[in-house]
Design a binder for these strands. Sequence first.
DNA 1: TCAAAAGCGAGAGCACTGCTCTCTCAATCA
DNA 2: TGATTGAGAGAGCAGTGCTCTCGCTTTTGA
Lengths: 263, 263
Amino acid sequence: MSRAVLSFVASALCCGKLVCMTSVESTRVKPPTPRERARTQTIADIVRLGREHLALHGAAALSLRAVARDLGVVSSAVYRYVENRDELLTLLLIDGYNELGDEVDAAVDSVLESDFAGQFRALATAVRAWAIREPASYALLFGSPVPGYQAPGERTTVPGTRVIVRLVHIFDAAFRAGALDAEVSPGVVIPEGLAADLAAIRTEMNLAAPDASLARGVLVWTSLFGAVSFEVFGQYGPDTFKAREELFGHQLSVLQGVVGLQG
Amino acid sequence: MSRAVLSFVASALCCGKLVCMTSVESTRVKPPTPRERARTQTIADIVRLGREHLALHGAAALSLRAVARDLGVVSSAVYRYVENRDELLTLLLIDGYNELGDEVDAAVDSVLESDFAGQFRALATAVRAWAIREPASYALLFGSPVPGYQAPGERTTVPGTRVIVRLVHIFDAAFRAGALDAEVSPGVVIPEGLAADLAAIRTEMNLAAPDASLARGVLVWTSLFGAVSFEVFGQYGPDTFKAREELFGHQLSVLQGVVGLQG
DNA sequence: TCAAAAGCGAGAGCACTGCTCTCTCAATCA
DNA sequence: TGATTGAGAGAGCAGTGCTCTCGCTTTTGA
């Protein structure tokens, strides 16, 4: 099981059904009882089986009853661990975000800190590789929203923003290091309302890059996921592009130029 | 009902269950019998109700039984008209593609033939407007694929490629008119495999633009839908961008520069 | 014109889903 | 040791897609 699964299972125990800790200090030292360990393991099993079903049949066909069968348990028993189907989707959502975030972090960290273009390409390549490997999870995270399901922001926002936060910090670090052309297109002006949004982002994330760079960073972000989505969701058609890695690499090169990353 | 619905219902009758025309010539002159007219009307009603359910509850929750109820008929009766749920999805897919294609065509046609940048922006703005107005249809067309559902290419390819075909022709017309900077980024080279794919596209679509322009056109295409998808699917988060029209307009300006469209 | 064929709607039924409720048994705790 | 809590089983409800059969009506063709 991935590191992501274990860490989020632990956090799920804090904000989920197991509300055993009225005082954190008093219980922190206690070792988990066998029952608690069994519960943690069962939830992890449910998530693991849920991932398998997600990968095999997609989010819409994710069935608690099928998970229960694979778990060797009657269907009503899983409701002891997962409130409902949406809750399982939330767990899988967080799991997916964290797995993607971990892989992106590892890929970016493996590149020289001064090689901003390399970091950008590593991030993008990691996103694409994960998306192709886990298309159903990618669809759950970045595809059409599941009807009637609203992700609980307080649990999904942090893991769900790991990639964009990392991407923005690459661009900002490049700017601070003088490796970002701030004047890529002097002709394009930033409208007033957009400038206000960008200013809020700059303050909140403690950034230094100017409006033009931030705006282009947003475009690169959406374009990256647009390209990956087209590939994963089959929008290119089956035969149009045989050299998909080359296409993606070329798109990265162009996007690199869009944001003004020297490389 | 939209023009798109009517036209595709007619075509559905030709390739769907009503295989009455063994010889096209012999039946072309015959007026439709009352039964045939009733059948056409019923299928159109099913598609209309399907669209409503799609808009209200999304593709995953699209239920033939619910459509049957709204149609005032028992559930098994709709199977006389629609083979199964996937067939209804196919009808809605074609309907959506054609409605989007009609609106894009109208928007582009309303711009001066020599104003290529204006045509590009009109196309993009029409796509975004339709997507925001019909998010469930947009999700069906451009979001995560419905699990277990494979769109029948022979029926969906033509309507499904109307937007990209139109977009490519705008770029190619601009190139032929000398309004496309062919040398936007001399540094970026096109790899061999990608060049082969682009050559095939150029031949098939009878284009004149060079590889670099075609490749950038592909990026603009994916970026456009990436930006629209982020907005429609809520990837930006609820509060990050308040000036979404301005953001989109700015993105179009940058993309216009990416492909080298003067304007 | 009239019987055969085809189309259509209703209804029952099967297997599946999410989810709730109750019952019983075992583990945990005071 | 007795009370509490958690867990699994099972029945049940309402919904789904889909199939099958049974009558009835419209259309067709000899």
